[in-house]
Each structure stands twice: as structure tokens, then as C-alpha cells.
Write a protein that binds this DNA or RNA. Sequence first.
DNA 1: ACCTGAACACCGTTCAAGT
DNA 2: ACCTGAACACCGTTCAAGT
Lengths: 202, 202
Amino acid sequence: MAARNPRHDRESVTDVALSLLDQVGLPDLSMRRLAAELDVQPSALYWHFANKQELLAAVADRIVGQIPQRSADSSDAATRLLLTARSIRDALLAYRDGAEVVQSTAALRLGATRATEIIQDAILDAPLAPDVRSDVADAVLQFILGHTMLLQQRMHAASHGADAGDESPFADSSSRVFDTGIALFSAGIPLSAALRSAQSPA
Amino acid sequence: MAARNPRHDRESVTDVALSLLDQVGLPDLSMRRLAAELDVQPSALYWHFANKQELLAAVADRIVGQIPQRSADSSDAATRLLLTARSIRDALLAYRDGAEVVQSTAALRLGATRATEIIQDAILDAPLAPDVRSDVADAVLQFILGHTMLLQQRMHAASHGADAGDESPFADSSSRVFDTGIALFSAGIPLSAALRSAQSPA
DNA sequence: ACCTGAACACCGTTCAAGT
DNA sequence: ACCTGAACACCGTTCAAGT
């Protein structure tokens, strides 16, 4: 009934890891459980990946790989940034605990390059020096990750621990906070050309 | 040599947990190791706390409890917000993995109340409707948490895995990105009075 | 009230050995 | 090249029982 021979490689293991993540969440995504899903001993995984962190990095790459290159060629800068930011958030929301997985591996690749590049593209016409632009892109990405992690944790907390009769309507309020945050960034960008002269007050 | 009798309560356990966190980091802060530090069996901890999550929530409360009420009564709104944001970041940086601990428990208390209130105080004079103000405060806090978590992970990654001769000068660039992010929020706030009419373009 | 002892059902990782 | 088997050093949590 079951095939023998090579069976798995890095890609197929990552496939199953990603779908297992979505089913059970990051806390229950163990090497042993993943091995069981693949009909393999836990030690077999260490032929394909050096350790769990490397596996999770591959999973994270799959998630950020599904961010669309350019979400829309909208006319004004503000809505272009908003649409880009939303498409990144939605890619993270597409898998359970997606934001946390990406965040935890973002520390290694110095700068979560792909996502940052897409944001930089979205603010290309802003009157910013290149180095300031990359700072702005980093800040926007950090907001997106912080926001989405909190949202996914609340989704998880709400699903198996109905704290106090709360009907958990935070999906609406969350996307309101998200849009507000991005709008504030947008509004601030044109004013931040004069950002280098007035240096830190403390 | 060692005392007998009651020995510990919620407070003293939290004390030791906090200092152990700072010494070994969140991944190595286990119930068993904490128990060893307290000269007690692991099961003893479950008389004081229902589970590990509840213990970590107490630790998180201690960390946010050390955010100063009002960092400074500066004249202009922009520097007041910047100083407040920095004082929150610095409280998180005061303990190893402080941001992650606070973030992971922030999901339960719907709204990390104390920190959000302090931010709301700092933008009290901005021309914003109360509900918009609280959205802005949430967004700022989510940026602070996202930024600080990434920074602390990089500090940890750099300390025991010198990736490629990089002299890890990201302390400077991080605080530059942080200041940029907060400055953008500040600059955007006065312009976001007209934020409710133009509703989402998608 | 506060803690021990022992157990249950798990972890990530290593390494010799198989095919 | 890819995987098994067995082991090592851990986890969080429960629960009867002690004092």
C-alpha cells in the first residue's frame, strides 16, 4: 500500500509542515508529529534539515513567497501603500500562526528582505533619500508583523477559551486599527523629508 | 542551612521567574528549571499558578509595571510621544525576551491596558475623537512590540551565532528605525482628523 | 496552606546501523 | 542517498499523599 524508496525531500517535507502548521498551530507543530504525518521516524527529518529552526525558516519562506509582487498600480501613494500592506498581512493570515513563524525567522535573514523590498517598491515615488526609505519600509513591516501576531493570538485565544461571553468582534476593530496605522505612516511620509536635521531630543 | 515552612508565594515565585528569564531567556525558562531555582519540586509551582501561561502573565505584569507613568512633560506633541514610546521600549528591553513575554500575554487582556493608556495620555491633546485616539494608541503599541521583539531576537541570534563576520551594529540602526516609525505616526496624527470620511478603497 | 513523589504523555537531537 | 532504532536529556501537568 505504501511506497518505499526515497519518499521525501526538502520540498515535500516543507509542504507537509506548512499544512500541518495550518491544521494544528505552531505550538503543536513538533518534529515528531511532522514525522508521523510523513510516515517516517523523527530522526529522518534531520537528514533534510539541520534542525527545527531551519525547517521553520523554509516554512516562513513559503509564506512570504505568496505575497503578490505588486498588489495594485493605484494612482495615489496612500492607497498604494495601504493595498501593499494589506496584501502582506493577508499572506500572513493565510496560515495559522503565519505571522509568528515569519517573525521568528525574520531575525536571521538580516532584514526580512522580500517583504521589505515590496514595501519599498510601494513608496518609491515618495520624496525620500534611499536610506530613509529603507528605514520607513522596516518600520512599516514591523508594524504589520506586530499587528498580525497580536491578531492571530487573539483568534487562537478566542477559539478555545471563551473568556467572558465576549462575542469576539475584534476582526472589525483590528482591521480598523490596521488601516489607521498604515494611514498614519502614509500621512507622515511627505513630512519626513526634514527628518534628519532635528535629531533626537534625549 | 535551608528554611522549611511556607517558603514561597505568588510574589516570590514571580520574582525568581523574572530574574531567571533575564539570565537564561524565554526558551530556557521552564517550570522545572524555575522549580530547581526555588529548591522545590516542579509540582509545587502548580499550587501558586494554574499553569505556565498564568506564571508568564504575572511576569509580563511586572515588566509593564515598570513603565514610568509620564516620561516627560515636553512642550510639543511629537517629542512627548517619542519619549513615551521610548520609555515603553526601554521597559521591554530591560529584561531578556521582555517584548515576547509581554506580547504573548497581551492577547489575553483584551488590549494591553496599561501600556495603551500611557500612550493615549501622551496624545491627549491631539484633535482626535476618543475612539480614533484609542485606535491610534493600539497601532503605536503594536509597532513598539513588533519592533522590540525583532530587536531582541537579533540580539539573541547575534550573541550565540556570529553569522558572517558581521560586527552586529544594529543597535544604532534599530533605534533609527524606531524613531523614524514614531515620527511618522506623530506627523500623521494631525492629518487624520479627516480619516473617517474616506473609507477603505477595497 | 504548602509541598513531595511518582507518574503520564510528550519534546528536540544524535548517532550507529541498515538498505 | 535516505531512513530506522535506540538512546539522551529534557518538557508541562496531574494527583494522591504527606506535614
